[in-house]
């Protein structure tokens, strides 16, 4: 059902973008000319470059550093490549947590119903009324570990609700279908029904929501990093690079524009994919 979506060229473009960004983040670091935290102080900060009027050496100034250095003389290319890993890890793992939780809750409540259904759906309503970023910054400030995995889990725990709702509705719909009813009456176990009939049917919406979730995770991570509550310092992420680069915005705009562009590319790609998939599933919204 959802696979029809691949024919929409927006999905294709989005996919190409996402694959490109992911490739940059996964494969890029192997080809990275330098480690992200090596400081090339002699080459990129030396000769009083910052002290007089200069910026950390820019493009073409220094061989071997095609994008120049940042405030600490670290290779910007290497940091972009490694930073992508962090940002995309947050996007994928965070979405994975949210999708898993959403699927479990959605299918359970949709299939079983009853008191747990009502309770969990109430929880969904409740969590949707929480101010996301306020809770997120409070958690980050209190936990203060700035660990990437705790960040993923927190973002995931705050974002599963919409997915659960949609999966639940879909599950209820599938459960009501005649052939599923027939399978039930023939004594198929609930687990079997869920896996053979429900899961394939809910995967479509899950793909759609999963992609836009990934986009919002990237945005959330960069916002947290911008507010100074993201991953711990030595590790680069696009968001934290942007924050660090702001220090030199007037002098070396590339320190802000490059990570900003990467964020934009990734978010754009995921959004485009989600958009295309949705329209393919529900042509009404063309």
């Amino acid at each position: 059902m959802g696979w029809r979506g691949w024919r929409d060229s927006r999905v294709l473009v989005g996919l190409v973008l996402v694959v490109a960004v992911v490739a940059v983040a996964v494969v890029g670091p192997w080809f990275s000319p330098h480690a992200p935290d090596t400081q090339f102080r002699e080459q990129l900060l030396g000769n009083g470059a910052l002290g007089t009027r200069g910026i950390p050496a820019g493009i073409g100034d220094v061989t071997g550093h095609p994008l120049g250095g940042d405030t600490l003389g670290r290779d910007v290319l290497a940091r972009l490549l490694h930073g992508g890993r962090v940002s995309l890890t947050v996007a994928f793992v965070g979405s994975l947590v949210a999708v898993t939780l959403g699927l479990l809750v959605g299918m359970y409540t949709g299939y079983v119903g009853g008191a747990w259904d009502r309770l969990l759906m109430r929880l969904v309503d409740l969590m949707l009324s929480l101010p996301f970023l306020l809770i997120a910054i409070a958690v980050q400030a209190v936990v203060a570990s700035s660990n990437i995995w705790s960040l993923c889990i927190m973002l995931g725990l705050l974002s599963w609700m919409t997915l659960a709702r949609i999966v639940r509705a879909k599950t209820q719909q599938v459960k009501g279908l005649e052939y599923v009813q027939a399978a039930r009456s023939m004594g198929a176990s609930p687990v079997r029904i869920v896996f053979t009939h429900v899961l394939p049917n809910v995967l479509g919406p899950v793909w759609i929501l999963g992609t836009s979730l990934a986009a919002s995770m990237i945005l959330a991570e960069s916002a947290l990093s911008y507010l100074g509550l993201g991953v711990a310092p030595p590790t680069p992420s696009w968001g934290s690079m942007l924050r660090e680069g702001q220090e030199l915005l007037g002098y070396a705009p590339r320190l802000v524009l490059l990570p900003g562009l990467m964020i934009l590319l990734a978010v754009f790609g995921f959004n485009l994919m989600g958009e295309g998939l949705r329209d393919a599933q529900d042509p009404r919204h063309g």
Binding site: A215, L219, S222, A223, Y226, L242, V256, G260, I263, L264, V267, F268, N271, L272, E275
Partner: peptide, 10 residues
């Protein structure tokens, strides 16, 4: 679409 994809702080 661009507005949706651009981080608010940027």
């Amino acid at each position: 679409f661009l507005m949706i994809s651009i981080p608010g702080f940027l």
